[in-house]
Amino acid sequence: MGTIIEFVLPAESFIFGPALTQLSGVHIELERIVPLGEQPVPYIWVSGTAAEPFEQFAMESPEVESATLLDQIDDRLLYRIVCTPAAGTLLSALFETGGTILEAHGDDHWFFRVRFQNHDSVTAFHTACDANNIPVTIERITTLDTVDGADLPVELTKEQQEALVLAVKHGYFESPRLVSLDELSDELGITPQAVSKRLRPAIKKTVYQAVRSLNGSEVGERR
């Protein structure tokens, strides 16, 4: 029986802390983590800053060995980051306890959604964080109880649900679209970028749930 936990921690408590705390308006989203031996390689999307200042501040993190710009789409930069988890850090705690990062993004703080094999692994992770003074605040714990190939329900935050319901209601997914991202942002009282950040994970989670239900097995999540 697997377990998913959602937690937050201050921006400076993860490897890209210097970039988040010293660059105003920057947002970082982990695309995936590929373990290569003991050296994890995150692929990340960066928005709200140019490449040069981000790379400068990213390299101030002692765990970061290199930052390679792979692509740019509009104002979003895709990076390959080679890093080595230092002892007593969040990354080392996750890898030592078998945590798999399903979702992670950061600006003034980091949000993580992580899957563990069982509750014992979650307890070990929490113990490691306490022992190393990693200021993790757990917001939600979900037990994944799969029976006969049935998968878990879609777990959306209140903000994601609100944005998704509003988008469907006003025809955002129609072809052609009946409402723009700007119009949705006006109704929600947030920026278009913030609406997009809510819709993207909501759509992803909903689609993967539907595919899993049809396929009867787990489908690896990619962005």
Rank of each mutant, 00 (worst) to 15 (best):
G17W: 12
T191S: 12
S217C: 13
E63S: 02
D145M: 04
P192A: 02
I28Q: 01
Q22S: 04
N133H: 12
V8E: 15
L164N: 09
V168R: 09
L69G: 08
V168F: 09
L94G: 06
I203Y: 07
Q22N: 13
E63H: 06
L30G: 06
Y79K: 03
I4V: 15
A150T: 12
A58F: 02
A131H: 14
V211M: 14
D71W: 03
Q39G: 13
Q117K: 06
G25N: 03
L152T: 13
H109I: 01
I44V: 14
S47T: 05
A202L: 04
A210N: 05
V211Q: 11
H119V: 02
P176A: 08
E183C: 03
D75P: 04
F16E: 02
G2M: 08
D75T: 08
G149I: 10
E31R: 00
S121Q: 15
T157S: 15
V165L: 15
P85F: 04
F7Q: 14
I4L: 12
S196C: 02
P18N: 11
G48H: 07
H27A: 05
R76Y: 10
K169E: 15
I203A: 06
G98Y: 13
V46C: 07
N118T: 10
L91V: 07
N132I: 00
E31P: 06
V219F: 05
Q117P: 09
V136Q: 12
T142I: 14
P53E: 05
L156H: 13
T21A: 12
V8P: 05
